[in-house]
Design a protein around this nucleic acid. Structure first.
Lengths: 151, 151
DNA sequence: ATGACTGCAAATGTTTTGCAGGTTT
DNA sequence: AAACCTGCAAAACATTTGCAGTCAT
């Protein structure tokens, strides 16, 4: 389901850009590159400063613009943990997943539960909705923080 | 589970304010009043303009500050549909619930599925997490919009 | 009286946009 | 050449904060 391990992300992006009649530029490739190397959920600002260290001439606005393109191209996912700014995670090589977030240390791990997915479908159907997607974030204490709290 | 139909929201707020050593003011009561009358999910800005029509002298900052207090007092819930600004819903008389949101008309309805709740617990436990809460939003087309799309 | 609260305007922090010049097709 | 892109700085957002004056306790 939605696993695209077949084609390199660069190709997907390239095709997307071409299909839209846009142009491939070095900045766009560099940003995608840095983005793909970073696992996890990063804010535009984090991505910007990482990009900046390698390619100092790239501007902040370009990072925001490319992030939007990546989202449109289906390579990035915009997530929101409700802490003020958005974060992006790359979808490339990642199947759909939800999040288990530690409220103490902030670490987030990716989870899936097929049974829950099915029940969501059924729940939506019960209200006559045609489900298109969902966002599920579970908040709690991770094992490590749980341990610390005991002391 | 978390249903507080017993005491008026005003009392709860009053007690909370007193317990904190804060002061009850007309602005705070007015804002709570307007907030409680509005069902659904409203942004601070929406609440502000509604408040403004009835009490023109109340300032924007006060609305934001009261919203924060209501959240602390357990009377309001901050939700985030990922569209740029936060929204608040009142918890008073509402048990925990998730959301089913129409991607076309934006309407959101409240849903609960006990079976899903249980599975979330189990899922978290599987990773050693002590679950404290969750956020689940399902996106899709509501029956009405589904109908329109067919034409 | 004291300490909290208010409205305003200014400040903040994130994201977007206008523009002049540079690049890709 | 044409259309698109870029970096920059300014603008646009939602939200927060500093302040001088006001009000609840």
């Amino acid at each position: 389901m939605g696993q695209d391990t077949g084609r390199p992300a660069g190709d997907i992006f390239h095709d997307f850009i071409a299909a839209k009649g846009f142009k491939m530029t070095s900045q766009r490739m560099h940003i995608l590159d840095v983005f793909l190397k970073k696992e996890g959920h990063l804010s535009p600002e984090e991505l910007y400063s990482t990009v900046k260290t390698k390619y100092p001439s790239i501007g902040r606005a370009t990072v925001y613009r490319v992030l939007k393109l990546l989202k449109e191209a289906g390579l990035a996912n915009q997530v929101d943990f409700g802490d003020g700014y958005s974060r992006y995670e790359h979808k490339y090589g990642h199947a759909h997943h939800d999040h288990l977030i530690c409220v103490s240390c902030g670490k987030a791990i990716e989870v899936v539960d097929e049974e829950i997915e099915k029940l969501q479908e059924k729940l939506a159907a019960r209200y006559g909705f045609a489900l298109e997607g969902h966002k599920m974030d579970l908040f709690g204490l991770c094992p490590a923080c749980l341990q610390k709290k005991k002391s």
